[in-house]
Design a protein around this nucleic acid. Structure first.
Lengths: 142, 142
DNA sequence: GTAACTGCAAACGCTTTGCACTCCC
DNA sequence: GGGAGTGCAAAGCGTTTGCAGTTAC
């Protein structure tokens, strides 16, 4: 979703388009690494020095309610925000916490088979694979 | 794992078998509903009035390090503890938060397919399906 | 006897809330 | 002009930590 689309989307919902809100939406909707609220805060501070964590959280909740992002809670209590609402596998490095999304037709087919077995209408899903990424492997072997 | 096995397991690891530790281990290892630390605390209080949350957490971390349980972090910041270390799907009611585990051949197939496609050695996994359970459906329809 | 464990309370980290001020519409 | 949105600071809540006292071995 580009800036223009975000503006229209917010207006359609009767929401005000402020510069902070636009910045936060553009940021999270374009990121593929599932940042935390704190990371968003730090990265937007350069351009918006007065932006606050409270605003970040309020905007993220808004996007969650609008079903544009999903929250991923982790064992250390942190929450990361994922703008990909389609079925995918979260590939998570157990050392550095880096995440990338993985999607194939095969995953979709197998997932559909499981859902038909379960006979439920899911309102959401989450598939995590924890592994050691190449960067962390290399650090260990040096 | 019954009480006798737990005692032997702890002894083998050189850990002391205290009544609190035994109670917490027996409790979490036999529960299928993935309780929180607070729930364990409340339920054990009757029998062990002086037990503390600190001890619950320390014991849970111990069991995690021993790979007898896994932690599941959620969006509200809470952590729930799951004694099933085999591959399974967590069926989670999005309304009441109730969880039950689901295992079939297809789940295993999905997992094997993903792993062979990805060509990684996983160190763990997590598969959640969020849905509305029968109890919550009935409440809504009355 | 002593090292590990417990219970308590304080500290911690992330998230939420309340409210006065600001700015979009 | 009015109400939604922002920023700040305080409060909230689950988890972790530190330490003195206790207990298993």
């Amino acid at each position: 979703m580009n800036t223009h689309n975000i503006i229209n989307f917010l207006r359609e919902k009767g929401l005000k388009v402020t510069s902070q809100r636009l910045a936060i939406c553009s940021f999270i909707l374009s990121r593929k690494d599932h940042p935390t609220a704190e990371q968003i805060f730090q990265e937007l501070r350069d351009e918006y020095p007065t932006i606050s964590l409270g605003t970040i959280y309020k905007t993220l909740h808004l996007l969650k309610d609008l079903r544009l992002i999903q929250e991923l809670g982790f064992n250390n209590g942190s929450i990361r925000y994922d703008p990909d609402m389609e079925l995918h596998v979260n590939m998570i490095c157990s050392k550095c916490g880096k995440i990338y999304d993985y999607k194939t037709k095969n995953v979709k087919n197998l997932w559909d088979a499981i859902l038909s077995e379960l006979n439920v209408k899911p309102v959401g899903q989450r598939i995590d694979v924890y592994y050691e990424c190449d960067d962390c492997k290399n650090i260990n072997s040096t």
